[in-house]
Design a protein around this nucleic acid. Structure first.
Lengths: 149, 149
DNA sequence: CGGTTGTCTTGACTTTGTCAAAACAACCGA
DNA sequence: TCGGTTGTTTTGACAAAGTCAAGACAACCG
């Protein structure tokens, strides 16, 4: 019987091949590093990858994250005041909720009525490709513990 | 007769005093550096300030920008892939249009129907304070010159 | 299985910004 | 008007996050 872990590796390998990328241990380990709903920075990913492949360099992680992002297998976000974060949920242009106190990030679906709302009132002649929305506020834990921002 | 330049310096000084900040040459020079609608990074500001006050240090500029931002006299934005930018238009929570090719930034008013639209579909229990919207696209010049992104 | 091409390692470097201590300047009150 | 106090600026070291380039190495194709 095939283990789930093996299944996941094979699925990851198939996605890499589909994107025209070579299948390497580093890349599989980066896929392994992400669990659903997480937003990890390059250092988080390096830490997790290094547990399995201790010789993996920081630059390899930057390289993998860049390649996977370019291939559309990861999405990169850069909230103000934070290093770049990566997530596995791609292709749906969802948005983010960031805690101004602890920095935790959550996904939120597209805003209600998106198509009509996210048309800027003046376009300055731009050909607009995407609208990115970030909500800032206090997460339940920080709110409960009395954090002010 | 009073010159416009003197008027502007006095207005800037009054705003500083109103915010409880000491009036210094550096701070007045930073105000001078901004023209309406511009989005300048710390280095841009330092360059302009140094034309008038050549001894001004980089750290003084960071200090002034931080103080003015904290006082609500400047607003800081941090578009992905760019150093922090500052603008003089504050207090109206307007949004931004960023060219993915050349990086130019323009202001846009609040999106149409904002109040209704910018409510996320799931709040994860957050106490939401603000919604930040960034539009990405090609500016007219880059669009005309055939840039692809 | 060997060659080609793309990936990873190593290590220097850049950019953007922060921290801390001492010199200095603005402002208040006498 | 003149000090004194407090806040600002200078100086210089440092830190975080990421980039660049060259050579070693591994994946994939035939």
């Amino acid at each position: 019987m095939t283990s789930n872990a093996t299944d996941e590796r094979e699925r990851a390998a198939a996605r890499l091949r589909g994107a025209g990328l070579k299948v390497t241990e580093s890349r599989l380990a980066v896929f392994d590093a992400f669990h659903a709903g997480e937003h990890l920075d390059a250092d988080d990913v390096h830490t997790r990858v290094a547990e399995l492949l201790p010789t993996t360099s920081r630059q390899a992680v930057y390289g993998v994250l860049g390649a996977l992002t370019d291939a559309g297998l990861l999405r990169r976000i850069e909230p103000a005041g934070s290093p770049a974060l990566y997530e596995t949920r791609t292709g749906d242009n969802h948005h983010h909720l960031v805690c101004t106190s602890c920095g935790k990030v959550f996904d939120v679906g597209c805003v209600v009525g998106e198509a009509a709302c996210l048309t800027p009132s003046e376009t300055h002649g731009f050909r607009i490709a995407t609208a990115e929305v970030t909500f800032w506020g206090l997460c339940p834990e920080c709110s409960a513990s009395g954090a002010l921002s």
